[in-house]
Amino acid sequence: MPYVPTAVSTGFRALSAVAPPLAIRLGTRAFWHVGPPAPVRPVDRAVHERATRGTVRVAGDRIVTYRWGDAGAPRVLLVHGWRHRASRLAALVRAFEDAGLAVVSFDGVAHGDSSGRRMSALDQVAAMHAVQEVEGTFAGVVGHSVGGLAAGLALHDGFAADRFATLSTSTGFDAVAEAFLRLAGLPDRLHDRFCDHVALSFPGGVTDARARIDLVAHPVPAGLPTLFVQDVDDRMVGPVQARRLHAAHPGSELLVTSGLGHNRILDDHDVLDAVVDHITARNGARSAARFPASTASS
């Protein structure tokens, strides 16, 4: 989700009061703004540089792929979120390698070293299917933020994987728009008009994005072992959405943490252990839900 500076949100708040249509148009432009590719973090540099690179094509865009580990080992696919790149999942790469799995990831459209100008959850879905044509079935899929949403939608549509875990993931299109409106300073009363305007401007001429991008209405296949991980201090995605996803996926597991926010959750050792345990089915069945005592009823 795009970062919205305080000065910009103040301007949107004022503009929405006097010229709502203009606020919606400018808000939509900001919503789609990707900005320059995120650099590889120094802490992730070693993992990034030792990957074996490849490419796949999605609707004319060149998608850069990455592979780590023994080519003969079971593989897990990692799917990054907005304004990130595959290397941001380096801690997960190391954790899965330590568990004996090979890892595959990719830079989404308009992210990292891939080409393109705009990226949506459906672009991530298309990239996943393109990667699967090359790599085959995966032992597991792990997604973060919009990458988690895309991974769930891809699994609903037939992407082949044995297990699924997602971190900091929203329920769908409307939830992402709601979070953006809040951060941008646009009032809730503009929600439906804003969603409709964003949907009309969707990449690739998609006409039903608002309905399609909904992981509650389009859950992963029944019986697919699924773990949702969410932090109560995430300003982008709140625990209520994780609970809705958990409820929409009978038999799924839910882990709610605190103090990690939207992105630090990717580097937390306990979270990494939980995700690896789930994908590899280590240590038996985990509890269906874990909440910090202070937030169990929130």
Rank of each mutant, 00 (worst) to 15 (best):
G143K: 15
D233S: 15
S120P: 00
V240F: 10
L153H: 05
I213N: 00
G148M: 07
P225V: 05
S87D: 01
G54C: 07
A288W: 09
V216Q: 04
V256Q: 04
T295L: 07
V43K: 15
S114Y: 00
A160M: 02
F173N: 05
L26E: 09
T137A: 13
V43C: 11
T6E: 10
A102G: 01
T169M: 02
L224N: 06
A23E: 05
P39V: 02
V275H: 08
A293H: 09
H218I: 13
A281R: 03
G204E: 00
F228L: 15
D267I: 05
Q132A: 01
D277Q: 01
N283L: 12
L155G: 11
H80E: 07
G261Y: 11
Q230E: 05
E133F: 15
T226P: 04
L78Q: 05
S145R: 00
D196F: 00
A293D: 03
Q230T: 06
T52C: 12
G284M: 15
L92F: 15
V93N: 12
H156P: 00
S297G: 10
D174N: 06
A95I: 07
R85N: 07
E253M: 06
D277A: 09
H249R: 08
T169W: 09
D196Y: 10
G238T: 04
A161S: 03
G27K: 07
L153I: 13
R193F: 03
M119K: 01
R212A: 13
F106A: 10
D174M: 04
A86L: 02
L272T: 10
T6H: 14
L155C: 14
A151T: 14
C195G: 14
R62V: 12
D267V: 15
R282Q: 13
A127V: 04
A177R: 00
G185W: 05
I279Y: 05
A99C: 11
S115T: 08
A110L: 04
E135D: 09
N263E: 02
A274V: 05
Y66G: 06
T65R: 05
V8H: 06
G54T: 12
D196T: 06
H278V: 10
A95P: 14
T10S: 01
P2G: 12
P292Y: 08
P42H: 03
P21R: 08
R118M: 15
T169A: 12
L22P: 11
D270P: 12
L149H: 06
N263F: 11
G72C: 02
A86G: 09
G204V: 08
A7E: 12
S258R: 10
A23D: 12
A102S: 14
E97P: 09
P42Q: 04
G148A: 07
H33A: 14
T10I: 04
N283E: 01
G140F: 00
V56A: 06
A30I: 12
F291P: 11
M128A: 13
R75M: 08
